[in-house]
């Protein structure tokens, strides 16, 4: 059976780039609302750690490329829908200044059975890490000295994303 193709515009309805925090409970409720066909709901939430490469992180600032961010995430969602039999998708990414413990990113996927939702969720997160134009700058404290630096991309993220191709 041919699946109906999702357009970039349709997929953009499933994406939110926002400075504000989000509620995990509210997002799960939206994925489940009037959804009687899907038995599986898989969610991932990313949060700000207090440490990176041995440094003590105090805050994190997220920059992005408006327009391209939405388009790249939409393309990732479309790929996931082509690859797995999934129902609803929601991707939220926060921007601006974030504190330790703050939620940064949310990916929610529903499907009839769990395998598709688990795989699609991991795929979306892995591709987001290497394809969506976000950049993190961390403010760190080292021996009482405060400084800030842009994070370097990790080869392990590229390797992980490559496993899907």
């Amino acid at each position: 059976m041919l699946k109906q193709a999702t357009s970039i515009k349709d997929a953009c309805q499933e994406i939110s780039i926002q400075a504000d925090d989000f509620s995990l409970a509210d997002e799960v409720a939206l994925l489940e609302k009037d959804n009687v066909t899907d038995g599986a709901v898989v969610t991932f939430t990313g949060r700000v750690r207090n440490n990176n490469n041995g440094n003590s992180v105090t805050t994190l600032t997220l920059e992005h490329y408006p327009g391209m961010t939405e388009k790249s995430l939409a393309k990732i969602i479309i790929q996931a829908k082509e690859r797995w039999n999934i129902g609803r998708v929601k991707v939220i990414h926060r921007i601006g200044e974030l504190n330790i413990g703050d939620q940064i990113v949310f990916v929610g996927v529903t499907s009839k059975h769990r395998q598709d939702a688990f795989a699609a969720n991991e795929f979306i997160m892995d591709y987001l890490k290497v394809k969506a134009p976000f950049w993190k700058k961390e403010q760190i404290t080292d021996d009482g000295q405060t400084s800030e630096n842009w994070l370097d991309a990790k080869n392990s993220d590229t390797d992980k994303a490559d496993l899907w191709s």
Binding site: K129, V130, P133, W135
Partner: peptide
């Protein structure tokens, strides 16, 4: 046209 470093979101 945009130029930027490798991305670090998520």
């Amino acid at each position: 046209v945009a130029f930027f470093p490798p991305v670090t979101g998520g």
